[in-house]
Amino acid sequence: MSNIYLQDISRGIIKENPVFRLVLGMCPTLAITALFRNGLGMGLSAAAVLICSNVVISSLRRFIPDRVRIPCYIVVIATFVTIIDMILKAFQPALYEALGVFIPLIVVNCIILGRAEAFAGKKPVLRSLFDGIGIGIGFTLSLVILSAVREIIGSGTILQETPYVAHVFGTAFEPMAVIAQPAGAFIVLGLLLALANVIFKRLNVN
């Protein structure tokens, strides 16, 4: 009984990891991962929207007519994005400023609409909740890994913009600034994806 829920969670983290396996939701993944704090903030915001929208869409699945389901899903998702947008603006103004237009753009994040279409629109509420949690963790984890690598190499620090900022290689270290630039985002993600391919192949995940 609980086994199936555990499966729903773990599937989102490894087997169907949205970034490293399905290559979805690339825009925020590339855009806001120059700093660890932004990556974590974005991951958690998207995860919150995903979990809420999964639950609501799944509980409404019997009432949503099949032909207009996509617009219905988008309205539900957009509502939660507006809520997150307001919450961040009120309580985390610095993070809100840093993420900028990418918060409203969570609406068109293909991961969330993809889960609504592939999972929440068909499966019971509780399973959709756990699916949302799993995919949410998978997405947050991917962003955290990518942003940690980019911040350490690109700025030489970790946890910048928070009270816990640390210089990883000491203050004399000259960082590779290009890694923090847009070009670096593409290259680092490409290399991490290659690494993930090798690891998944070793682990025989299909």
Binding site: V23, L195, N197
Partner: peptide, 17 residues
Amino acid sequence: ALQGTAVTLITAGILSL
């Protein structure tokens, strides 16, 4: 290991440079 999206991303990175 680089086949598929990985090499495309790295190409995009060079283009972005």
